[in-house]
Design a protein around this nucleic acid. Structure first.
Lengths: 249, 249
DNA sequence: CCAAAAGTGTTGAAGTTACACCCATGC
DNA sequence: GCATGGGTGTAACTTCAACACTTTTGG
């Protein structure tokens, strides 16, 4: 517990700044969030994955590192939410005792920079023992308690995702490369948290030219198989160059 | 220059976290930003107002403090932009020598949390000697160089203001209590950086019911005096409760 | 043959764009 | 009387919202 603080040099963890990631996944029905279990025998709430940053490390890089350490994934969609710095964010007893265990300076004031990321759930299946700390996909709407101020961060992540989907079509990061319009429709309903008319949604998406249909259909589904689509990166770039910034969902 | 780092306790400045504020003002013609002059005889670029945070201080509170110390103003519109933490943000020689002068730990890694705020320019007229460091309103489009990574922060502030004006009608914070539709029109053009049709703009604003007209006209203007308007807080609250979140400008 | 999701058009209402002239005031 | 910004209406077009039935597959 002795505090040895030396002059800040590279390769050192910075005791005052951390990053936390809200990792969203979509199971074709609802949004899920990847949370880590800090279980130490006693019952403690789950937390968002995160850690202190290194002094020589860019903030974004720290978030990428946390994400890769946890899931092994690279090149995933990442966006900063903002900084959270309530001096009382470490008020719960369970959080304090956890910090005593894992931090060199458990008493230090910490501000955290939150990120949200969008991953294809198929790309990361948590395995019971894949890491020292275990992780799990939890349906967004079932999350009622988290460590520290992570509920607040989660709320901000939801808000920002909802807002951003109107500005850039980032939702495709949550779907596999090939998807159906029905899946895209469900995704938008999950993110915007409201029902949307099927016909109007399809018309709108197709008019925007953001998807291109493949010469391929779903297989093995117990109903009429759907056309498969892909995100059309080219048309998206063209659309952005026109200064488009409002999808009006 | 000796580094005395003790255990983090309240009332201490945190060496690793600062806040910076982009303070916007509108002169009825264009947007301006309040910058401070760090002049020490030699020629150095201006900077955004900012400072380290205290360990017992909420981030938002630190921004409010910086703002009040500089301008004397309270209760002004403030919104977080995000955290900026490139480890190389302190790469210019002039910035380093300035830090040597003002910081207890000039070498420390600093991440900064940026805010933008909207003030009525009439409320703060910089006086040459009102503070040790002098401040000035500079037209946004004339700012080509700033200290540290402040140009990057400024760009993010512009982007966020432009985006936010579509989500909440925050522009009114830049105008006096009583204003004309012509002034509001110019403001929207300045923020969105594009010309807008006068008649369509007026129709739209009035349809939204966000302004109420007063029984009062401009005085002493060398042209037909305009009706004066006020922001209608009540109707705004009602509108927000309907889940409105897209003004489509 | 049943369950489940896919796929498809029309209509009325609302909103958007583009555009040009007269008005009231101070100087 | 002239310069300056204030104030106003319409028509063509586009977009949006609401709504129900048939199709294809697996089981």
């Amino acid at each position: 517990m002795k505090q040895e603080i030396k002059k800040n040099t590279p390769l050192e963890l910075n005791p005052n700044v951390s990053v936390d990631c809200v990792i969203f996944g979509f199971d074709f029905d609802k949004l899920n969030v990847l949370v880590i279990d800090r279980a130490d025998g006693t019952s403690v709430p789950c937390a968002l994955p995160g850690n202190l940053i290194y002094n020589n490390e860019h903030l974004d890089q720290a978030a990428i590192r946390v994400l890769e350490e946890l899931t092994g994934l690279k090149n995933i969609y990442l966006e900063q939410i903002g900084a959270f710095g309530d001096p009382n964010r470490i008020s719960k007893a369970s959080d304090q005792s956890w910090l005593q265990k894992v931090r060199a300076q458990p008493e230090a004031r910490v501000i955290t920079v939150a990120y949200f990321s969008l991953v294809k759930m198929e790309d990361y299946v948590p395995q019971a023992s894949s890491f020292a700390k275990s992780a799990a996909w939890i349906p967004l709407n079932n999350i009622h308690e988290l460590a520290f101020d992570h509920m607040e961060i989660l709320a901000a992540a939801k808000r920002q995702l909802k807002q951003m989907i109107n500005i850039r079509p980032i939702g495709f990061n949550l779907l596999p490369e090939k998807f159906t319009l029905g899946q895209l429709h469900k995704l938008y309903e999950a993110i915007l948290d409201k029902p949307m008319d099927k016909r109007n949604f399809r018309r709108k998406i197709q008019k925007l030219n953001l998807v291109k249909s493949l010469e391929e259909k779903q297989l093995g589904v117990p109903h009429k198989p759907s056309q498969l689509f892909m995100f059309d990166e080219n048309n998206y770039q063209k659309l952005m160059q026109t200064g488009f910034n409002n999808f009006g969902f």
